[in-house]
Design a protein around this nucleic acid. Structure first.
Lengths: 344, 344
DNA sequence: GGTGGCAATTTGAACGATCAAATCGCCACG
DNA sequence: CGTGGCGATTTGATCGTTCAAATTGCCACC
């Protein structure tokens, strides 16, 4: 008996209204096969009439699961709204799988690992998505040791062979596609502009460029520029390459930010057209800040999110799903379709 | 009895270890004054030793509260990472107040309002933050009718006098500050470039510009440009204004995107310096995409988030806290400190 | 007509916490 | 020496759900 609470229609209220027991109502919702059709119909009407919705806390308590996925969100840096887009994709994918995304921010006082542990131990979340895995990330072995379910977005660089589950996008493949594209557009001096050595994904993208250049038998030696992510520094780095006696006619870049810098450094010709063709990485809306819009390599974020959620769900529910790495392919979004101006 | 579960140390386990009853352990955590000091110490040691953390679902069930704040996240559009920054501020503020942020995405099949109702009825969240309040937003009266706690970020335009609680930033004030700033830098033809009539915040910002221009006794008639948010269209709109016989020497803009467009339209003089000075709105990192970096009006996001969470908490807990509107002031971040080139 | 089997349904017992009320021990006071 | 009062602690009940086991009703079969 109840229903006296503000907004609380309980399963017992429904049971009373339908003239059955609580468990029958529960069965209608969770195991319809066990219930006689006409009974089920009567119960469904009572549910509808009373506007019954099962209490989440009670379910969570009973089922020992929160159906929440934890995600740490850090102070945003940089111009990209990559996180925005990934967050939306992840939230949608989680929703489709019956989960919610629960955000938390690291606090100044607490030890970061303690925050993760707390969320698991209190049952606030069932597992984590790690979207900011760094090289030799100490969270991974720590989580594994405690059997805390998690899935990485991004390969765990330096511990790829560890027993970790991840989803990543093959950046090297994307860059190779970009080089191939530029080659078909008759470019031969194709530079690479990206992060300095040390970031896993950056190194990989640069390797993809080098591989493609060798495959096409093109020179690569004096065509590498590196700098931190930032338009101004990227422009400087690109300018240094442009001062060469045989300057690049195109840039393949580690990020859209690098690409914007390269485009600015290249400048415009007499007709007001960009002197260098660039391909960025991420296809962020920021890429539209320059005109004409540049080409960029798009990561399949919806697919990434979907796979991440699926794998995490399996690891949360499944007793012992084996670690698994999933590699997805990015796609080149080609936007500069005019002929290159020169062909040295 | 228990503790047999994988990672579940319960309050009874702690009680047994410390040689007291469950309730005493509960009191140590929730009402320490009721417990004798030496008993409390013993219990605390047991908690520490066993690594006890209270189960969130059990607390939620008993206390009829989830300590979660719901936030709808939509597909990102535009270049700004404003949501990123607000999300981080909101997550931090929520965490400091003992809450978590729970994200959800609207699904294609469900009615939007039904999703909100579901989250409340199931007790998944205690209330909502609405960061995307539109004019005559139908959610507001609907929530109020159902006594669903919520706080808006942004005035509920068109229903400011409704019984709603909100936090907003005084955009008109910020714009006026920008105009004052430009006037002290000897500008006289200061244009406004922003959204077409119809967005509450946009209209308000334009009014702020007009008010400041009148206050300074400056002409304003032919200095208004409107367009959607987008660099290319903004540049076009700004160009139209520049073609006037007496073109503007500065732009005050409704967004950073508009401002980037205005700067591009203005172009550079012989010394490579921007011909027009611009002030954007939001101080997004995208503002750094152009060089020299432009001035912009910064919203106090941390303060906004803090107030939003505080008000929501009061409305969730308090029986009947009266509706309240909080207006905060933005701050002009002035970046172009060189003298303007001309003074017509 | 008694019995076994089966489908449909109900009852009892958890899940882990907190509130309210009851109990305990101890001291002071008349 | 009995009683009242008070601080410290314990017991019982409850939040709303689901699992496991028990019960009911019905039909078929020997």
């Amino acid at each position: 008996m109840s229903g006296r609470n503000a907004n609380g229609v309980t399963i017992s209220d429904v049971a009373a209204a339908a003239g059955v027991s609580r468990q029958t109502v529960s069965n209608v919702l969770n195991a319809p096969a066990r219930v006689a059709p006409e009974t089920a119909e009567r119960v469904r009407q009572a549910i509808e009439m009373l506007g019954y919705r099962p209490n989440r806390a009670a379910q969570n308590l009973r089922e020992r699961a929160s159906r929440c996925i934890g995600l740490k969100i850090a102070a945003p840096i940089g111009v990209s709204n990559f996180l925005d887009r990934f967050l939306y994709a992840l939230t949608s994918a989680a929703g489709a799988a019956g989960y919610h995304l629960l955000l938390f921010a690291p606090t100044a006082v607490d030890e970061e690992l303690a925050v993760y542990e707390d969320l698991i131990r209190t049952g606030t979340v069932d597992g984590f998505v790690l979207a900011d895995v760094s090289a030799r990330d100490r969270r991974l072995p720590w989580f594994a040791e405690r059997r805390i379910p998690f899935v990485c977005f991004g390969r765990p660089w330096g511990q790829e062979n560890g027993p970790y589950t991840w989803v990543d996008v093959d950046g090297a493949y994307g860059i190779e596609q970009a080089v191939d594209h530029l080659v078909t557009r008759r470019h031969q001096r194709i530079a690479y502009l990206g992060w300095p050595e040390g970031t896993g994904f950056g190194d990989e993208r640069r390797k993809g460029w080098l591989r493609a250049m060798e495959r096409h038998d093109l020179p690569a030696d004096d065509l590498i520029g590196v700098c931190a992510e930032g338009v101004a520094v990227a422009a400087e780095a690109a300018e240094r390459l442009m001062r060469s006696p045989t300057p690049p006619t195109a840039f393949v870049c580690g990020s859209d930010t690098h690409a914007v810098g390269a485009r600015l450094a290249g400048g415009l010709d007499a007709d007001g057209r960009p002197r260098v063709e660039v391909v960025g990485f991420d296809d962020s809306p920021a890429a539209t800040l320059i005109s004409p819009r540049m080409s960029s390599i798009r990561q399949p974020l919806d697919e990434v999110a979907h796979r991440v959620v699926g794998l995490l769900k399996a690891r949360v529910q499944g007793t012992d799903s084996p670690p698994e790495g999933v590699m997805l392919r990015p796609e080149l979004v080609a936007r500069e379709l005019r002929r290159p101006t020169s062909d040295p």
